[in-house]
């Protein structure tokens, strides 16, 4: 195995609110290897975005705070860098593509200017016409037609898809080693989504960057990811390569996610959501965070009392496969089964 580009160990991020401390990320460990696409999947509030934003210092520092952990990137712990040093990383060797390109671009500045800014911020010696050429080249790379004209336009003159292309262009402008795409297609319609995925792939090819793809869309994961992390309530519940996860999921939550996808072929009248609500991240019940909604738990005491560790599973797939479930082995062959959701006692 080559050296990971990014190594996160025991990352914990808390938010202090009037109602209490929200443990948004509660002990997360993973690696990202060069050139791969790591998908992070989960519901809203699972901590998937926060875990990546926090290592770049992009969460609001009050009320948020990184309470523990380390994030090794290019030989340095990002969490221990000074503000100045961290700024040199952002947009440079690590870049983010955000979810909503309409609100993520400054409406009163020209596109060309905004892209040029990124370059100038990290390559201050480059001259203005060089920067302009560079930007036009980038626009061409992401497939924006007539880039010279588009250079002078404002975000509101771009369509949704084009804006996202521009965002991607902005992210790859300085040849990042790691690209983080946070829900890059969620705000776009389906037909455009496919195009953007293509652009992302092109971007990866051009830069050889590793990618973290954060989404709740399993289809996207299936299409793009090499490995997958499933997050729930601020923790990783399953980790493995994409094929294994899809063919042989070994966590009730992962199974629930897949079951809840609407299928064109299946002969069903009703969708199958995971029953119950995600837990409060302030007062988490003891034991497994998922047990109140788990069909596998069936009220077993161990689920209620003991928090399951993230442990290796042997499900016959390639690479590392981890699951945080006491009874993961019981899930063998579970994908084909239409599991009956049993609501355990005490669930609200």
């Amino acid at each position: 195995m080559p050296e990971p580009v990014l190594s996160i160990r025991d990352l914990a991020v808390h938010f202090t609110t009037d109602d209490g401390v929200v443990r948004a990320v509660d002990g997360v460990t993973y690696d990202v290897y060069p050139g791969e696409t790591l998908g992070i999947v989960g519901e809203s509030g699972s901590g998937k975005s926060v875990s990546t934003m926090s290592i770049l210092g992009l969460i609001p520092q009050p009320p948020g705070k990184v309470v523990s952990g380390e994030a090794m990137f290019q030989g340095r712990d990002l969490l221990k860098l000074s503000k100045k040093e961290l700024r040199r990383v952002r947009g440079n060797s690590m870049a983010i593509v955000f979810q909503d390109p309409m609100t993520s671009l400054n409406p009163v500045l020209k596109i060309g200017f905004q892209l040029g800014e990124t370059i100038k911020a990290h390559h201050g010696s480059e001259k203005d016409d060089e920067v302009k050429d560079h930007v036009i080249q980038l626009l061409r790379t992401v497939g924006i037609p007539q880039p010279e004209r588009r250079f002078e336009q404002y975000p509101h003159e771009f369509s949704g898809g084009m804006r996202q292309r521009a965002m991607i262009a902005m992210a790859i402008a300085n040849q990042p080693a790691l690209l983080i795409a946070d829900e890059p297609t969620t705000a776009l319609d389906v037909t455009i989504q496919a195009q953007i995925l293509e652009v992302l792939k092109t971007a990866q090819d051009e830069t050889h960057a590793a990618t973290i793809l954060i989404t709740h869309d399993l289809g996207l994961i299936a299409e793009m990811a090499d490995r997958v992390i499933v997050m729930y309530a601020g923790k990783i519940v399953e980790l493995g390569d994409v094929n294994t996860i899809f063919a042989a999921p070994r966590h009730p939550y992962t199974i629930g996610l897949m079951e809840s996808l609407p299928r064109l072929t299946a002969d069903e009248d009703w969708l199958r959501p995971i029953p119950g609500q995600p837990p409060s991240l302030i007062n988490r019940p003891p034991g497994c965070p998922f047990h109140p909604r788990c069909f596998l738990s069936q009220g077993r005491a161990r689920c209620r009392e003991e928090e399951p560790p993230l442990r290796p599973i042997h499900a016959g797939g390639t690479g590392v496969h981890l699951s945080a479930c006491h009874f993961a082995e019981e899930l063998e062959g579970a994908t084909s089964k239409l599991a009956e959701p049993t609501v355990a006692e005490g669930v609200t």
Partner: peptide, 28 residues
Amino acid sequence: ADYIRTARAKGLIERRVVLKHAFRNALI
């Protein structure tokens, strides 16, 4: 706003974020 987050994510120094990006919009 989101675009301020983007500006920070690009690695711009805080003063530029405030003056060039935020201020320009807030002034309108």
